[in-house]
């Protein structure tokens, strides 16, 4: 079964070797996603509305709506402004080494494994959501941006 692929393109920098642009591109996109998640979670935790945030930042509500929609044009200043205006927060920085972290045992859905599916008597026995990985809230898990 084909469920994996080479991962050697993502390896830790070493010596004088140039880091491939593609590896940089991958981590840039990942970083944007992580920053976005941090800001949006703070916004949701704060309980304020977009209208309130707009007033605090001296912007129009539709500008805030676009800003919170995704991190496409965020700069470091945008992140700082948003976090402080939301709750007086500032980013806390640290580094991690994801390529050195232990491999997850769970690398494909259980139901892809024919023997496992047959043994369980079901082809539907996979786990969708591991709570330890959940980031926001409870219930349905979905969150609406507060509207004006």
């Amino acid at each position: 079964m084909n469920t994996s692929q080479p991962t050697s393109f993502l390896s830790n920098p070493s010596g004088e070797d140039a880091v491939p642009d593609t590896a940089l591109a991958y981590f840039r996109a990942r970083h944007r996603g992580r920053v976005y998640e941090a800001v949006i979670q703070e916004f949701l935790r704060s309980g304020i509305t977009q209208a309130t945030l707009a007033r605090r930042m001296g912007k129009r509500p539709e500008q805030i709506n676009r800003l919170l929609g995704a991190p496409g044009n965020w700069t470091l200043d945008t992140v700082s402004d948003l976090l402080f205006a939301i709750s007086g927060a500032e980013p806390e920085y640290g580094v991690r080494y994801p390529l050195n972290e232990p491999l997850r045992n769970y690398r494909q859905p259980d139901w892809l494994n024919l023997q496992a599916a047959a043994a369980s008597g079901s082809s539907n026995g996979f786990t969708l959501w591991r709570q330890s990985d959940a980031a926001i809230g409870t219930g349905s898990g979905a969150t609406f941006l507060r509207t004006m």
């Binding site: 469920t3 994996s4 390529l99 997850r104």
Partner: peptide, 14 residues
């Protein structure tokens, strides 16, 4: 093809 994250330490949630 099932496509797990390139970083092996990342969880598979969806």
């Amino acid at each position: 093809f099932f496509l797990p994250p390139l970083i092996p330490a990342l969880p598979i949630v969806r």
